[in-house]
């Protein structure tokens, strides 16, 4: 209502929808981008080795029965924040560091000392627990493969990791019962 006017002029108040639209679309994009990266568990900490296009086949559908294992250049197993075992390791990786200490904000204060045997043991526990989870899922399946774990383990190791680090993870995978395995590499571009 206008205070001074005698005549009643209806005021047209339109909500400004454009900023809202901007925000919504940006959010949609954000979620689109992050869900893909979380699902594929790609991380900048792992720089894959390169292989020729003849041996490294493009990844198409891998299905949903998969497990990613990311290994960094020091041979530590990086954990997915969505993984149930994530909470056990405050900085999100199994690195076998003994007596590592954190401050209240979760930052590493002292790195501790590296113990390979300890790291192997921790990785084994982690893989065993993961295998049991997959086995439980498999028990609920119907059909011939009821109770049989057919999970594909996808190993993504950093190019500077040593053979020993990779080999130990492979051996542990097999030991706990995984049967299908695949390595990942960056496909080399034709020169």
């Amino acid at each position: 209502m206008h205070a001074g006017g005698g005549a009643h002029i209806p005021e047209l108040v339109e909500p400004n929808l454009v900023p809202l639209l901007d925000l919504v679309l940006q959010m949609v994009m954000f979620f689109m981008a992050t869900t893909t990266f979380v699902k594929e568990e790609r991380t900048a900490l792992v720089k894959l080795p390169t292989a020729s296009a003849q041996s490294a086949k493009p990844v198409d559908a891998v299905g949903s029965d998969i497990m990613y294992l990311n290994i960094n250049d020091r041979g530590d197993l990086l954990l997915n924040p969505l993984d149930s075992g994530f909470g056990l390791y405050r900085d999100g990786k199994i690195d076998g560091m003994k007596n590592k200490t954190f401050d209240d904000a979760g930052r590493v204060v002292s790195q501790g000392t590296f113990d390979r045997a300890e790291r192997n043991r921790q990785i084994e526990v982690h893989l065993k627990r993961a295998f049991q989870d997959f086995q439980r899922d498999a028990e609920h399946r119907q059909g011939d493969d009821k109770g049989v774990v057919r999970t594909l383990v996808i190993l993504r190791a950093h190019q500077d990791a040593s053979y020993r680090d990779v080999y130990e993870v492979l051996r542990l995978c097999r030991q706990v019962g995984f049967k299908k395995m695949q390595l990942r590499a960056t496909i080399e571009q034709a020169k």
Binding site: L25, S55, R171, R184, I187
Partner: peptide, 26 residues
């Protein structure tokens, strides 16, 4: 913005491939 996002994330060189292998015996 959308265009820019897709332009910077488009990276042919980083295409990931898989290599089949046999697991080592334990």
């Amino acid at each position: 913005q959308i265009l820019f996002f897709f332009v910077i994330t488009f990276d042919m060189g980083q295409q990931e491939g898989y290599m089949a292998m046999n697991l080592p015996a334990t």
